[in-house]
């Protein structure tokens, strides 16, 4: 086991095809499987399915919320694709946001998780302190704080001034506002970090011990043990990071309101405005389903790529 074979076997698809090794009585495993997933299945049919189906239907209507929906066929979709400059703008803002913030947050939170996974006295206090920014989430205090830091006379510019650099109004400059939001998003890396932390703790210590016996150094252990053993969790954080970032809303909503000049007008905020501010729920529903299509496509790509780098202890690594 000392030399785990990472990166080779077992993608998701394979796992789906052949999870159980012994073919047992089919009906029985079917029953057990459905029993276990029944809470979700029940909830899906009772609470989730109808609203989702409804929103799909509404995407083909003109619906102000205040009046009954009127069927308009595919005209919402046609309008979105043919003459809505804001759609293009908000989609590109969102892509930039996802492309930068997802990898940045993954990297940063993994590094911090590793630093915090050691058993040092007082570690629980450090962890709590470092998790703190993620606790305050979308609170009003965050908006005030962020203005304090990145305003024209904020702390960041005061520090820059020591080095003779004239700062800008980071939040209110259209060139830097999105970057500031990405930074805020990265600063709230706590959840991703905690998931990494739990993943790190799940790696059996014996693997490291036997690797030490084999004379492996720190870096080698990281590459040969930590990364492959952590890959399912990393995969999770990546997939969910992409899904979540495409729907990023709160920070833009409370800090920039999408401005200045739409520079932080992320897709979910655009959609929210359409639905609840401009009373165009039908149009907003169409926007939502387009987003679903984009995110689903990217997630499928993620799953396809995962078979080349995600390593599942339960599927591979061991001889049959």
């Amino acid at each position: 086991m000392g030399t785990a074979e990472p990166l080779s076997q077992a993608g998701y698809a394979e796992a789906v095809k052949a999870p159980g090794r012994k073919r047992k009585n089919k009906g029985e495993t079917n029953l057990a499987g459905y029993l276990f997933i029944s809470p979700w299945l029940l909830g899906f049919f009772l609470l989730t399915l109808w609203p989702i189906a409804q929103s799909f239907y509404l995407s083909f209507t003109d619906y102000s919320l205040l009046e009954a929906p009127v069927w308009t066929g595919t005209s919402n979709y046609a309008n979105i694709f043919s003459n809505d400059a804001t759609f293009t703008k908000s989609l590109s803002v969102t892509f930039v946001f996802v492309l930068i913030s997802v990898p940045l947050k993954l990297f940063f939170s993994l590094m911090v998780a590793i630093a915090l996974s050691r058993n040092i006295r007082g570690m629980n206090l450090y962890r709590t302190a470092i998790y703190f920014p993620s606790l305050i989430g979308g609170s009003i205090a965050v908006a005030a704080l962020w203005r304090n830091m990145f305003g024209l006379d904020g702390y960041v510019n005061q520090v820059l001034a020591w080095f003779g650099i004239q700062g800008v109004g980071w939040i209110t400059n259209p060139d830097t506002s999105l970057g500031t939001l990405i930074l805020l998003n990265t600063w709230q890396f706590g959840s991703t970090m905690v998931i990494f932390l739990a993943g790190l703790k799940q790696i059996p210590q014996e693997l490291y011990e036997s690797a030490s016996v084999d004379g492996a150094g720190r870096f080698r252990k990281f590459v040969r043990i930590t990364l492959p053993m952590l890959s399912p969790v990393m995969f999770f954080n990546l997939v969910l990071g992409v899904i979540g970032s495409f729907q990023t809303f709160t920070s833009a909503f409370i800090i920039t309101k999408g401005g200045p000049i739409n520079s932080t007008y992320v897709y979910a905020l655009f959609l929210y405005d359409k639905a609840f501010k401009h009373y165009q729920m039908g149009y907003a529903s169409a926007l939502a389903w387009i987003l679903l299509g984009i995110v689903a496509a990217l997630t499928v790509l993620n799953f396809l790529a995962s078979r080349y780098w995600v390593f599942y202890e339960s599927d591979g690594g061991k001889a049959k």
Binding site: P19, N30, G33, T48, L65, F246, A268, A275, A284, A296
Partner: peptide
């Protein structure tokens, strides 16, 4: 566990996360 349509249901599970909540909140 292995059961019929497992991959299908898992896909549905993931899809429910990708639709922005703003459009399902009213229904």
């Amino acid at each position: 566990l292995q059961f019929k349509l497992r991959a299908f249901w898992f896909l549905i599970l993931l899809l429910t996360m990708m639709l922005p909540g703003q459009v399902t909140v009213v229904p």
